[in-house]
Every structure is written in structure tokens, then in C-alpha cells.
Write a protein that binds this DNA or RNA. Structure first.
Length: 429
RNA sequence: GCGGCUAUGGUGAAGCGGUUAACACAACCGGCUGUGAACCGGUCACGCAUGAGUUCGAUCCUCAUUAGCCGCCCCA
């Protein structure tokens, strides 16, 4: 007995309806991004490790443990991409796209990313992300709001109901440094009573303490300073503008002063999106602005803003009704389903199928071994419009059966062109 | 990486240390009628995640491995 081979831990096979829904989500989001002037891009699935380690900042030692390394010969240390942002930045630098007269640059992407983590529901080792990145020498409020609105609106359209938008403003790099110091100062005397993880966070990334789930630490966190107290006047003004736009558009948001995106490159606006019907899934997407990432990886002093959705989480957020609604526009239902019951087969049905396909029809066929009853059931399941039945009771002809109306007629097969034009004339949608 | 729970056909699942591993749905074959529903009859796990062990005997007990789920770490 042969050994069975399973898919690797934390990966998924997309089959049948799920695959169709996945494709539909992807095309809906792409179309939405294009409404905002974004262009699609593709970048490699693996990159030099240092791209991510540098791009990711202080906490990189932890992060690098969660990357999929590629053991390759030679001097290059490659990893499977754990995210798109750094790779898209690299693309902009390498292709000198920053020299474009048409700023801001607006890109969208969709594809797999890889993280070496312990899998759980909605949390895989290979997951797909759809996202955007906008670039400019200085990301202004217009670009910021376009990104934020695209983030909210596209998901709202997809899921068909309002979502929970959490936002926070991390301010400039300087504000960030001051805030970090203030936090350290605040926690220093209390550290003894806090959990082990927080001790480590204190050293590695103080901001993360704010996310601690230990009850006693949660209490302490309530007293912790807010980053909004450390914003410059300019930052505050920008935050207020963003809020006023959200309010005038009736988008309900939650200003969450404890929202800290994981990586250090974020400056300015950060945001996350939750589905109120599926809060246990965690954020279905997140993003923010970053001020110096491009410069850090050897590019010009450009700023960026971007977000990504987790495609699998979006898929999990859709109920069956919503999925069916999405698939309404899916082209793929069969027009013709060929059933050959003759004792002596010939190749006529195959030639006919080829001809019909070149006319633009969707055509499939049944297995020779299947009986008529089973074949019709199959045609029904495939949602085909017509069955073309070849049998020995009607030599040199074919039964053209309208599966929706359950009517049928017998048509001569002596002339292929004539048959095709008959089908064209009678069954063109 | 740490801790916990779980694993039986295409699906949902019952089951017990001992001969044929229930039942239902789906699928397939046949009947009614060579034509999709319903109904009736039949078929469908050489096998209980994988590997080893205990035992006269294991799907059931033990261990390891793999995978899923949940919590933690982390979450780009």
C-alpha cells in the first residue's frame, strides 16, 4: 500500500466553489483598486532576506524566525516573501519608478505570502494577500484618504455590510521616539509586577505591551500614556481632517489609541478592519503609512502608504448567500453537454465540440461509461443549458435537448457547418 | 517555538479488546419510461490518519509521527 502524501501544514487546496469565489473576490478588489487609479503589478515570490530584515526594523530578529528561508547554493540568502510592502518598495527603487512625473504612484497586487507560524483558522503558512501601495515624495492627505477609503469601501462592497474600522495615528518618527521613551518611563517602576512576555517586550518593542492579554497588565495599560498626547500640531491637524472626512461620509470608525501595527516602519496613520459578524477571525486587513522604509532599503526619500487584506479571511467572512451573489456574474456555466451513447463511437462529437468552443461556447462532455440517466444528472449539476445526445436510435443525427425547458428535437449531423449554424441560430443567448 | 483537544468511505457520522465496521446523504448500476423529480431494487471502507508496540487477538490500549482545531508567542 502506498504512502499517502498530504499537503504541507498550513496550506490549502482551493477547489470548485471556493476557487470560483476566490477568483471573484480577486477580480472585484482589482476592479475597485482600478477605480482609484491603481495599476496591477506582479513581483517575485522570493527575495533577498535582507530586504525584509532591514525593512522590518528593530523587532527583526523575531520576525526573521517566522520567515521561510530557502536553502540555496551561492551567496544569496533568499526567503519566501512574508509580505508585499518591502518587495513593492524594492520594485519602485530598482525600476526607478520614483522618477515618474506622475506622482503619486498607485499599485495593487494579489498573491501568496509565506510565514512560518503555527497554523490556526484564518492563519496559514501560505496565505494570499490583496493589497495596495501608494508612493510619493510626501504622502499628502488626499493620497492618505484615497488609500483609507479604498481600504474600507472595497471590503464593504465585497461583504455587503458595514465594517469596523479602527484607526490610530502614530505620528512622525520623532513623535514615535518620544512616545516610546514615555512608555518605558511609565512601565519601568511597574515592570516587576508584569508578565514575562512583557519583560521581553519592554526590551524588544515596548509598544507591544499595550496588546498584552494578561488581566493585571491590562489594568496597568489603562493608565499608560496615549500616543495622541505626543503628536505634533501638524499631526493632530491631519488626524482631525481624516476623522472629519470619515464622519461626513458616514463611515463609522473607532479611534483606538492602543492600535499598534506590528512593524516599526509605520508612521502616521495606521488602520485595521474587522467584520462585526466574524470578530473571532481577527483583522481581515490592515495597513498604514510609512515614512522611511524606501530610504532604509537604499531608495530615495519617498513615503508610502499601503494596506493588505487576507484573502482567506475574506473568504471565511462570506456566508453562502453572499458567495452565490458574487458568483452571479461568474462565466463558466456550460452551454452544451455532450452525451455519446452509441455502441460504435466516432469522432464527430469531438469535432463538433471543438467547433462550438471556437464559436465561443462552453462545452463539456460525459464519460462514455456513464448511463443516460447519470449523464443527464451530471449535466444538471453542471448547470448546462443544452445536452447533445448521440445514440443508435437516431443515426446520423443528434438529439438537442433543452435542459431548462425539458424539450428536445432531432437534428441531422450530415453537415457540420449546417449543424453549427442551426445551434447558433436557435441557442444564441 | 510552548500547552490543550481531535483524526473512522466522497460527505455527516455510529461503534466495540474478538468473526460481515451501523445508519443517512451523495455517487454509480438497474426498474418504472433508453430522458434529469419521486418511488423501488442493487453496488459502494482489502479499511477505522501514518508507523511501531502491548495482546492469543486492536479501529478501540501505549508510544512516536503527520495533520486539523483552540489558547500562548508573534501577527509584516
Amino acid at each position: 500500500m502506498s504512502e499517502t502524501i498530504n499537503k504541507p501544514r498550513g496550506t490549502l487546496d482551493f477547489i470548485a466553489k471556493d476557487k470560483k469565489v476566490y477568483d471573484s473576490i480577486r477580480s472585484l478588489l482589482s476592479a475597485y483598486a482600478e477605480k482609484y487609479g491603481a495599476e496591477g503589478i506582479e513581483i517575485p515570490s522570493f527575495e533577498e532576506k535582507k530586504l525584509f530584515v532591514r525593512g522590518v526594523g528593530e523587532s527583526s530578529d523575531i520576525v526573521s524566525k517566522e520567515m521561510f528561508g530557502l536553502d540555496v547554493k551561492g551567496e544569496h540568502d533568499y526567503v519566501l516573501r512574508p509580505e508585499f510592502t518591502a518587495g513593492v518598495n524594492r520594485m519602485v527603487i530598482e525600476n526607478k519608478l520614483y522618477a515618474s512625473p506622475d506622482l503619486p504612484l498607485r499599485f495593487y497586487y494579489c498573491g501568496p505570502v509565506f510565514r512560518f507560524e503555527r497554523p490556526q483558522k484564518g492563519r496559514l503558512r501560505q496565505l494570499s494577500q490583496f493589497g495596495i501601495e501608494f508612493f510619493d515624495s510626501k504622502i499628502d492627505i488626499q493620497t492618505t484618504l484615497d488609500a483609507l477609503l479604498l481600504f474600507y469601501r472595497a471590503a464593504e462592497e465585497l461583504l455587503g455590510h458595514s465594517l469596523i474600522l479602527k484607526i490610530n495615528f502614530l505620528g512622525s518618527f520623532e513623535s514615535r521616539v518620544k512616545y516610546r521613551e514615555a512608555l518605558k518611563e511609565f512601565y519601568a517602576p511597574k515592570l516587576d509586577s508584569m508578565c514575562e512576555d512583557c519583560h521581553r517586550r519592554y526590551q524588544q518593542n515596548v509598544l507591544r505591551i499595550l496588546d498584552c492579554k494578561v488581566p493585571s497588565d491590562v489594568e496597568i495599560n489603562k493608565e499608560a500614556p496615549f500616543i495622541t498626547d505626543f503628536l505634533t500640531e501638524e499631526d493632530k491637524k491631519e488626524l482631525n481632517t481624516i476623522i472629519s472626512v470619515l464622519e461626513s461620509l458616514n463611515i463609522s470608525y473607532k479611534l483606538d489609541p492602543r492600535l499598534v501595527r506590528g512593524l516599526d516602519y509605520y508612521t502616521g496613520l495606521v488602520f485595521e478592519l474587522y467584520d462585526p459578524m466574524n470578530m473571532d477571525l481577527g483583522a481581515i486587513g490592515g495597513g498604514g503609512q510609512y515614512g522611511s522604509l524606501m530610504k532604509e532599503i537604499g531608495g530615495p526619500d519617498f513615503e508610502g502608504i499601503g494596506f493588505s487584506y487576507g484573502m482567506e479571511r475574506l473568504l471565511l467572512s462570506l456566508d453562502e448567500q453572499r458567495k452565490d451573489a458574487l458568483l452571479k456574474n461568474y462565466k463558466g456555466d456550460l452551454d452544451f453537454f455532450v452525451i455519446d451513447l452509441r455502441k460504435e463511437k466516432d469522432t464527430f462529437p469531438i469535432i463538433l465540440e471543438d467547433e462550438l468552443r471556437s464559436e465561443g461556447y462552453y462545452v463539456s462532455s460525459s464519460s462514455y461509461s456513464k448511463a443516460l440517466n447519470g449523464s443527464l444528472k451530471m449535466a444538471d449539476r453542471k448547470n448546462a443549458s443544452y445536452a447533445l445526445i448521440f445514440d443508435d436510435y437516431n443515426p446520423d443525427s443528434v438529439i438537442v435537448k433543452n435542459l431548462k425547458e425539458r424539450s428536445q428535437e432531432v437534428v441531422s449531423t450530415s453537415d457540420l457547418d449546417q449543424l453549427v449554424s442551426y445551434l447558433n441560430n436557435h441557442f444564441k443567448k
